[in-house]
Design a protein around this nucleic acid. Structure first.
Length: 416
RNA sequence: GGGGGAGUGUCCCGAGUGGCAAAGGGGGCGGACUGUAAAUCCGCUGCGUUACGCUUCGUUGGUUCGAGUCCAACCUCCCCCA
């Protein structure tokens, strides 16, 4: 699709495609014309299954951001209702159902985490946040079946990937999960009714659900709706974006600090730098071309730009600058920079307990193994004795301890 | 309802049919080499006060000096027949 970039007339689609964000869309010509003609209202839905979104959702969030930057109106749809059902796509097992309270708490937390990405308000292109629980929770079963259910062919639903793949692998699927796509299709129509929303965007795996919504819109509202999908982002090595050893790369600062988030991007593989700059920053394309052309160690400069820009979008310019400075002091000067993750606690007995207390390792055994592999450092000196006692005398001039696992993970400990 | 099969180290896959803390792989972590990259090589990958002890193979009982392995019941899933 990116080769079509130059053929689009609308600013939004041209830029979107040129950045490698476009995977597929329905009726490209009509959608392009719509974007060129008027302010478009578009939505993306997010599940409330966790207290924070992670990097895997970032492409979607960036899509909303770009829509807004191009003067259109993004809707952030929180799946407070659909989360009660659970998306069957891709999962091998039905997930445990979350309680309504848990879903609501997750929703609030997610919203807090994405504040910097979009401008909310009452202006013409200000972002709107809504929750599909507002309409899904109130549905009356029989009227819903008569008005909406009649438009869905079970035969067709069975052929959709989210269902088919599951059945093909002999994995169970309850009637509950089977309804997810109907709810998502209905969301689209409801958002059209409420906000004149004409476009739904999502990852490419949601194509089937999007098309269902478009079909439903034509049948019940006689309107042409559009769908737009983004590619599934993997690293050049084939790993899914945002999954690291420590778990998902969460967007909320209380789960992954701006410094750690900055580090995540700083450690991007060489081959991904240009692509990620296009996808995850607002930098102009010619600037990105210049950065990705850097060779060898020079490319580290591009990674620093990537990290700072990406962090800035999520946490703000100041937090990004702080993170960059903390990283510079830590990695280039080898110091105990104040911006590192810091734990204030009473110094425990022995180095093992200290390492566990900071979360650098999860058990004493793991700490011992790390020490045996020369992986644990206290104030940059390799710890070789697992029985090492840590007391006030070990504090640096700043009155802290710097504890490191390997060369990249550093934390500070302040005696309480 | 009848017949057959499966559930293994709480990341995943997967060997194992009486001596097992349990093969192998992926993933992950650490080390070497580098550029906070990739590739490659090496080590580690249940917990603990670590030449020892404790907990682990769907659940609960049983046989045995000893059970992931044998027996019984139960739970969950899959396949075939009805």
């Amino acid at each position: 699709m990116s080769e079509l970039a130059s053929q689009f007339k609308s600013d939004f689609l041209r830029e979107f495609a040129a950045r490698g964000c476009l995977y597929d869309c329905t009726d490209p010509e009509a959608l392009d014309a719509l974007f060129a003609k008027e302010r478009v209202t578009a939505y993306i839905g997010f599940d409330c299954t966790a207290a924070s979104l992670h990097v895997g959702s970032l492409v979607q969030l960036m899509t909303l951001r770009r829509l807004q930057q191009a003067g259109h109106r993004p809707i952030l749809l929180m799946g407070g209702g659909t989360t009660k059902i659970g998306d069957p796509s891709g999962k091998d097992e039905s997930r445990l159902l979350l309680s309504a309270e848990q879903i609501e708490a997750n929703k609030q937390s997610i919203l807090k985490g994405v504040q910097h990405l979009l401008r909310f308000g009452d202006g013409a292109s200000d972002a709107i946040m809504t929750d599909n629980a507002e309409w899904l929770d109130r549905l009356d079963y029989v009227p819903f079946l008569r008005d909406i259910g009649r438009h869905f062919s079970v035969n067709r639903m069975l052929t959709m990937d989210s269902v088919k793949l599951r059945l093909d692998r002999d994995q169970p699927m309850s009637f509950l999960g089977f309804n997810y796509m109907i709810m998502q299709a209905y969301d689209f129509v409801e958002l059209y009714r409420r906000y004149g929303c004409r476009l739904q965007s999502a990852g490419s795996d949601q194509w089937g659900n999007i098309v269902s919504g478009i079909d439903l819109g034509r049948r019940v509202e006689n309107v042409q709706l559009f769908g737009l999908t983004t590619p599934l982002i993997t690293t050049a090595s084939g790993a899914k974006m945002g999954k690291t050893a420590a778990g998902a790369v969460w967007l909320n600062a209380d789960q992954r600090s701006p410094y750690e988030y900055w580090q995540f991007w700083r450690n991007t593989e060489d081959r991904d730098v240009g692509r990620f700059l296009r996808l995850f920053t607002d930098l102009p394309l010619d600037e990105i071309s210049r950065l990705e052309a850097l060779q060898g160690a020079e490319l580290n400069q591009a990674k620093i730009v990537l990290a700072t820009e990406a962090t800035s979008i999520l946490h703000g310019r100041a937090a990004a600058a702080d993170a960059a400075e903390t990283a510079r002091r830590t990695f280039e000067e080898g110091g105990a920079a104040a911006g590192l993750p810091t734990f204030t606690l009473k110094l425990p007995d022995g180095i093992l307990n200290l390492a566990v207390a900071t979360g650098l390792v999860s058990s004493n055994s793991e700490a011992r193994k790390l020490i045996a592999n020369n992986g644990l450092r206290l104030n940059d000196a390799i710890v070789s004795d697992p029985r090492l006692q840590v007391d006030q005398g070990a504090l640096t001039a700043d009155g802290v301890l710097k504890l490191s696992s390997g060369k990249k993970k550093h934390v500070l400990v302040k005696p309480a």
